[in-house]
Nucleic acid binder design. Structure first.
Length: 856
RNA sequence: GCCCGGGUGGCGAAACCGGCAGACGCAAAGGACUUAAAAUCCUUUUCCCGGCAACGGGAGUGCGGGUUCAAGUCCCGCCCCGGGCACCA
């Protein structure tokens, strides 16, 4: 950014001075501080509006142009709502735990707290330079002990709760204790529990990862290989909430795609568990199937290789083959086990199972296409009506038996749809849904099975072997876990000299021997929470960020989250699609637990969700350092000002859409702001003589009020690009006008203010200095102008005349013309008479206020 | 393979509930101002044909059909691009 470039470029207006001046003003006056109920300055008569941005991870690279996109949208809405008379809560904070800071610490030995602090400073500075109206008095940081104290506290609430089956609500485990339940029984029901599970161990990062953090067998962060191994881990019982997490999406105003995505992720599946006795044994294999009606078509069974019954079932002849196969599967990454591996593999165990409906003996195989983690880890294979089973049967020459007659005309070898049951004595001739019901009842009656629901959703692996995260408020003694007393929160991580992973699944915190030692025989838990933890509840902390006695004050929570009939508390939540599943699902889960326990007043956290679209580089490619197409917001602000950057990001296209950057486009909106400046200034930069306290002509009033109306509806619809287009129309009109009445200019500045707050404040101040009739600023504190439809009324309108659907003429007629008169006028017009030319008129369609179509 | 999102001028895009396709901006061209340039202001700009012109005619919203007085918009069948999921029984 050589000084040359910027000084040589013609300045449209002195944005540097203006922006710095107003940012200082806002800071010094705490213009955007929002009082809570019961605080000084709180006005209970106004409606509340909580607008939230997904808070950023303050990376070392600073802000990129993607951040200001959503942030500007919410800023406009916040400013607009305030001017329209709402109490607006619009906070910002930092999701600052996480790997990059820790990786940096490993490299440099510098404490992550230092780098995080530095990054936060930079981010805050950058956001302020964009002129966002955040209430900075509510700023939070997930790494601040005052904050994560409550993250740990919430964990303890989860730890100390179980799900009451009957009410489907979380209840304190103390109730189970009171009922005389044993410690083991209670531990087995806690919503936070320890289990030995197959985990994704990533040696490269020295940590275990959630399924969601593993992509194609590699870590999402860093792309290191990930292997499976069993480990004792903290888990959160999110599956207990599966049903509610699906059901309660209903009342939310979220994009349909995101709702669908969450539903699919949870993956509810209704069917039946069926017990197959193992031949020559007292054991049973329980399978889950969504097609119990195909029970007669089961020609073999498959267990997941990890299934506990495998050892027992395997015959001596098959043992070697089974062991070899299991070893082979254990080596495979998830990638190798998925559909990308074309050929199905498996081996027979030699064991046989008995089909409960007909007593038939069928062979039991193991194959890795059956997953231990879903359903019961075992299936009955019906190759005639399941593609995977069909493929497997083909591969190994297993029999295929058709038991569903497809509808007429369908000749698929493997038919998956609904039809009519055949070769199924108990319910032959029944349509599929009937057959399902009938066989399920039959099985239930004999104790051979029952109707069940399974979910794809797994419990949430909540532990990480990292340094830079929230320590668990847990103590181990004699192999048992206990909650750290609430009074001892927060549990602050120890200082370390060496952040290097241990190379084993033992977390780095274990190196701090003194810290780990809690008592004579007691040790601290050394795992830390995943990065998701802090973001699961941050929207609550914003409401009452300084509360020392509660995670959020009850009254403030009720006011900002409640106060409307919707299930969700935050009125508008804007962020990227990358959080469609994980963050939004986890936050909903925590929120529901807190709701059940009575700490929050709504069942859902976020009422309305909007995803902003990705901004691509100027070349239409994803921005990346390697492509060299990254746009730096600091530089854009330097060259065009923050108002231009804000305006351009909103003018590029619809918020939700993916769209490419354009430097020429920034120049375009920059010129527009220059034109706004010149509405008030002449070419020498002096106050323009065209600005006068004059009665505005009807033409200007019309365009002004059209603009007020359009900008209102467009902001409500978050259609910022079209709002800006209309403001451009308005400015073009004002520019062309020889007289620019100050009343019109002032109202226009109100309308532009949420989009370009700095420039409009400055111009308004200039106007008020000359015209004391105007109410004194700042503009942001004054009410939005009132739209008056009266100014839009015209007495004539233009009607399009079509002949056979083609535009052939236009007619100017009085607006109050009736259909008959209009029709007559059209038929009488020269052009129509000419085109009709004696032909028969079949029909005349009159669309009031729009057009008349003469059909020949 | 499946599920989303999207295909409209040279480019970003707009178009209420089916009613003038291309608002607004960019780029381009011409003009005014200027010694000159930049900046600014004004004008033109979907494509093709005819005309000196005002204008007139035709085509046109990824492709092919359909419904309708009228389709970018609704229905059926495809093609292409972007994103996500991926043996969940």
């Amino acid at each position: 950014m050589s000084g040359e470039k910027t000084t040589e470029k013609h300045r449209q207006y002195p944005y540097h001075e203006i922006e710095a001046k107003w940012q200082r003003f806002w800071d010094e006056n705490e213009t955007y501080r929002t009082p809570n109920p019961a605080e000084a300055g709180f006005d209970a008569s106004r409606p509340k509006f909580y607008v939230l941005d997904m808070f950023p991870y303050p990376s070392g690279d600073g802000l990129h142009v993607g951040h200001p996109e959503g942030y500007t949208a919410t800023d406009i809405i916040s400013r607009y709502r305030r001017k329209k008379g709402s109490n607006v809560l619009h906070p910002m904070g930092w999701d600052a735990f996480g790997l990059p800071a820790e990786q940096y610490a490993i490299k440099t030995g510098q404490h992550p707290r230092i780098t995080t602090g530095r990054n936060v400073e930079r981010f805050r500075e950058q956001l302020k330079r964009l002129g966002f109206c955040y209430d900075w008095s509510r700023e939070i940081n997930t790494t601040d002990p005052e904050y994560f104290k409550w993250t740990q506290w919430i964990f303890l609430q989860i730890y100390n709760s179980y799900l009451d089956e009957e009410t489907q609500k979380a209840r304190p485990v103390a109730e189970l204790e009171a009922r005389g339940m044993s410690r083991e029984e209670i531990d087995a029901r806690r919503l936070a529990y320890v289990a030995e599970v197959q985990v994704n161990w990533c040696p490269g990062l020295g940590t275990v990862l959630a399924n969601e953090e593993v992509l194609d067998g590699k870590s999402e962060v860093g792309g290191f290989p990930v292997e499976r191994r069993p480990l004792r881990q903290w888990m959160l019982r999110i599956t207990a909430y599966a049903e509610r997490l699906i059901e309660e999406l209903e009342g939310l105003d979220w994009p349909a795609g995101i709702k669908r995505h969450q539903r699919e992720w949870i993956g509810r599946s209704e069917g039946a568990d069926v017990r197959f006795p193992v031949a020559a044994s007292t054991k049973h294999i329980t399978v889950f199937t969504t097609r119990p009606d195909t029970l007669y078509g089961a020609t073999y069974m498959v267990l997941a290789p990890e299934h506990p019954l495998v050892d027992e079932i395997t015959t001596p002849e098959q043992r070697a083959a089974v062991e070899a196969y299991r070893a082979e599967v254990a080596m495979k990454s998830d990638l190798d086990r998925t559909a990308l591996a074309k050929e199905k593999t498996g081996v027979p165990t030699g064991g046989m199972a008995i089909n409960p409906v007909n007593g038939e003996h069928i062979p039991v195989w193991i194959a890795d296409y059956v997953l231990i983690s879903y359903g019961t880890g075992a299936i009955m294979a019906v190759p005639a009506h399941d593609e995977r089973d069909f493929e497997f049967a083909r591969q190994f020459g297993l029999p295929v038996r058709k038991v569903v007659e497809p509808p007429e005309g369908v000749t698929d070898e493997c038919f998956l749809g609904d039809g009519v049951a055949i070769h199924s004595p108990i319910f032959d001739g029944q349509p599929t849904p009937e057959a399902k019901r009938k066989i399920t009842a039959w099985l239930e009656g004999r104790g051979l099975g029952r109707k069940t629901i399974h979910y794809k959703l797994r419990d949430w692996l909540f532990a990480r072997q990292r340094y830079w995260g929230e320590p668990f408020p847990i103590i181990w003694e004699d192999g048992r876990h206990y909650a750290v007393p609430e009074a001892e929160l927060p549990v602050v991580p120890p200082e370390l000299e060496d952040y290097q992973p241990t190379g084993t699944p033992e977390p780095p915190l274990a190196k701090a021997k003194e810290w780990v030692r809690y008592g004579e025989h007691a040790m601290r838990e050394t795992n830390t929470m995943p990065q998701w933890a802090g973001s699961c509840w941050y929207y609550l902390r914003f409401i009452d960020a300084k509360n020392h006695t509660r995670l959020v004050g009850a009254e403030a929570e009720r006011y900002w989250m409640g106060a409307n009939p919707n299930p969700g508390g935050v009125d508008l939540y804007v962020g990227g699609t990358e959080h469609a599943v994980l963050h939004l699902l986890y936050a909903r889960f925590w929120h529901k637990v807190l709701y059940d326990l009575g700490y929050v007043s709504t069942p859902e956290p976020f009422q309305k969700l909007v995803n902003q679209g990705l901004i691509l580089g100027e070349d239409g490619q994803k921005m990346s350092k390697s492509r060299g197409n990254v746009i730096n917001p600091d530089q854009v602000i330097e060259e065009y000002g923050a108002d231009s950057l804000r305006l351009f990001e909103m003018f590029m296209g619809p918020l939700e859409q993916v769209k490419p950057w354009s430097t020429k486009g920034v120049e375009g909106v920059y010129r527009f702001l220059g034109r706004v400046w010149r509405l008030v200034h002449d070419e020498n930069g002096d106050f323009s003589p065209k600005v006068r306290d004059a009665g505005p002509p009807a033409k200007l009033l019309r365009v002004l009020h059209e603009t007020i109306r359009k900008v209102e509806t467009d902001i409500d619809a978050m259609s910022f690009n079209t709002a800006i287009a209309q403001m451009m129309v308005c400015v073009n009109e004002l520019t062309a006008s020889e007289v620019r009445p100050v009343s019109v200019l002032a109202q226009f500045l109100h309308v532009l203010n949420p989009f370009a707050p700095h420039l409009t404040e400055e111009l308004y101040q200039i106007l008020t200095a000359r015209f004391p009739v105007l109410p004194p600023g700042p503009l942001s504190g004054l009410a939005w102008p009132k739209f008056d439809p009266g100014y839009l009324i015209e007495d004539t309108m233009e009607i399009v005349v079509q002949v056979n659907g083609k535009v052939r003429d236009r007619l100017v007629v009085p607006v109050d013309i009736d259909a008959e008169t209009l029709k007559a006028a059209v038929l009488a017009s020269e052009r129509v008479k000419e085109l009709v030319n004696g032909k028969e008129i079949k029909k005349v369609v009159v669309v009031p206020k729009r057009l008349v179509n003469v059909v020949l």
